[in-house]
Structures are given as structure tokens and as C-alpha cells.
Write a protein that binds this DNA or RNA. Structure first.
Length: 108
DNA sequence: CACATGACTGGAT
DNA sequence: AATCCAGCCATGT
């Protein structure tokens, strides 16, 4: 995958996240080469509100649904995740280590 | 143009 | 082990 633009790359990577899996902003940032710019990943997703991006599969490093408030409805993110078989409790993904998808390892 | 803020993270306290 | 602090960089005021 070429480096068109930071935002575009974020979109592409997020689209590649397998169903029932999640990843972290930092993992995406690292894959893009801007390891310490995890914040921009979230910013990019915020800008992609109209894109076909499964942003609900992107959580912070501890599996917390930090961006659920930006899904229109606070429970939308949780609902979408559970719909894919991901267990979410108290806005936090359960069994994170089992469903975590690291682009630098799985994709490359 | 300068300052504040944010869907984060890692190291220091 | 839990909490705090500073770095990261695009966007908005």
C-alpha cells in the first residue's frame, strides 16, 4: 500500500481490519510510520464520519471505546462490536488480546 | 499568527 | 501498581 496521505492510509488500514477484530490507534500509526502520532489517527477517523470505515473496530490501547460518543449514539459502537462477536462491557472490549489485530504483524 | 483541544501513548513520578 | 506529564500534529477559534 502506498503512502497517498495520512488520512487516506488510515482509512485503508481500518477497512482491512477483519470482522470480529479490533486494533489500536497506536498500531495504525505505527504501521503508517508515524508511531507517536496516534492522536492523528483518531482525528482522521473523526474526519471520516461519512466514509465507509468500520471505525468501531478501532479502540485505544486498552480496548476502551473512547470514540463511542462520535458515533451519533453512545451505544452504537458497542452494538456494532457485539454484533461482530466482540464482547464489550462498560465501554471496554473484553478478550482484547485474543481479538487484537496488529497491521504490522498480520498485514505488513 | 498564537493558543487550545483532541477517537493516544509511553515514560516518569 | 496507579496516576501524572509531556510529546505528537492537524484543526478550529
Amino acid at each position: 500500500m502506498e503512502k497517498a496521505s495520512f488520512f487516506q492510509d488510515v482509512y485503508d488500514v481500518v477497512k482491512l481490519i477483519p470482522e470480529g477484530r479490533v486494533t489500536s490507534y497506536g498500531a495504525i500509526a505505527k504501521y503508517l510510520g508515524t508511531t507517536s502520532s496516534a492522536r492523528m489517527v483518531g482525528w482522521a477517523l473523526n474526519t471520516s464520519y461519512s466514509e465507509n470505515i468500520p471505525a468501531h473496530r478501532v479502540v485505544n490501547r486498552i480496548g476502551l471505546l473512547t470514540g463511542k460518543k462520535y458515533f451519533g449514539h453512545p451505544d452504537r459502537m458497542k452494538e456494532l462490536l457485539e454484533r461482530e462477536g466482540i464482547k464489550v462491557k462498560n465501554d471496554q472490549v473484553q478478550d482484547l488480546e485474543k481479538i487484537f489485530w496488529d497491521p504490522t504483524k498480520e498485514l505488513f
